[in-house]
Design a protein around this nucleic acid. Sequence first.
DNA 1: AAAGGAAGTGAAACTAGATTAACAAAATCT
DNA 2: AGATTTTGTTAATCTAGTTTCACTTCCTTT
Lengths: 194, 194
Amino acid sequence: MEIELILKYISRHIDLSDKEKSILVEHVKVRDYLKGQFIVQQGDVCKYESYVISGCAKTFFIDQEGNEHVVMFAIENWWTADLGSFITQQPADYNVQCLEKTKVAQFSHTSLEQLYAQIPKLERFFRIIIQNAFVASQKRIVRNLSLTAKERYLIFREQYPDIEQRVPQYLIASYLGITKQFLSKIRAELIMEN
Amino acid sequence: MEIELILKYISRHIDLSDKEKSILVEHVKVRDYLKGQFIVQQGDVCKYESYVISGCAKTFFIDQEGNEHVVMFAIENWWTADLGSFITQQPADYNVQCLEKTKVAQFSHTSLEQLYAQIPKLERFFRIIIQNAFVASQKRIVRNLSLTAKERYLIFREQYPDIEQRVPQYLIASYLGITKQFLSKIRAELIMEN
DNA sequence: AAAGGAAGTGAAACTAGATTAACAAAATCT
DNA sequence: AGATTTTGTTAATCTAGTTTCACTTCCTTT
């Protein structure tokens, strides 16, 4: 069933015995969300790290002026949470909202600490996952500082073609740090250019 | 001596036995750099994760147009490396250059893998360190997307007052993603305002 | 102390991207 | 199928931040 997926995914990075797999499974909750539902809400403590089995979600926040900013998307095989809130168990800065019917596998904070104690290899697993996320995050900062909106859009399209198909344009604009009008202009230019 | 510092720092997050401490010490190299020297050079493989014992370094890269972009600073008790390069052992995208005479404790890639094998708790340590770095990186993205240059400068000043003192303004401007002229203008405005 | 480079300031002209507003096209609902 | 809401487009005006260039101040180094 669905749980197999996450075990397989974890096994890409570390080896798990059958015993360990069953311990893990005991601590995971699979949960379904409808389109529009929130996995995390700004102000609440982020209770889970969620692994997306199917569907799609956006992480965003609302700034002082009431504008929405998309921080990241998550699709199949990605993790999503307000990690800062999850780690510290303080109120979340971000919202995570489903853009489609979405199925996730969730680890609570206490479950995860117990899992770390029982399966120390999981520390390695999450270290690797987060290391990669950090490197990607740094690259994004660099791109935001050194590239134009058009260049960033082209890279996004190339890097996440699947996300581009599934997500409305104005959310992609927000992720890129531009307005939907400007993205629309960029797209019109790109069509002209060839 | 200096090595004590890093052991103390690690002990803030995990408990190390004397045995483990001595294993660790065997794998660390302390190295001194002069002002201007490079810890990592764009194009080379990043051989070490470096923990700054004293001094200060900048991580930066040169874009297509030849402009320098500061990605981050590192002072006492910070880690520095091109983590992407270090993990994959592929050529580095970034340079790490000392802004002062700088003393670091370095872990090579193979040393670190051996340490992970011998002291599994270190996986936990680095997971926590990188988790925090990732959260900070995400926050920086969010600030870059939602705040003006002036707001970002004020936050930077508050968050890293020590760095602001030690580092030339034009590097801070670069870190903030603006020109030195514009930072100068912001500073003039701030002085006017009170 | 003089000289030369590195860092910081100021001002004018410019541009990437924002804002506003009006409209068009899809998607969703009844 | 028609109505309503959600997305996407176009265009005019505006602004935060850039660019260029000239000038100043501050470090170094001799």
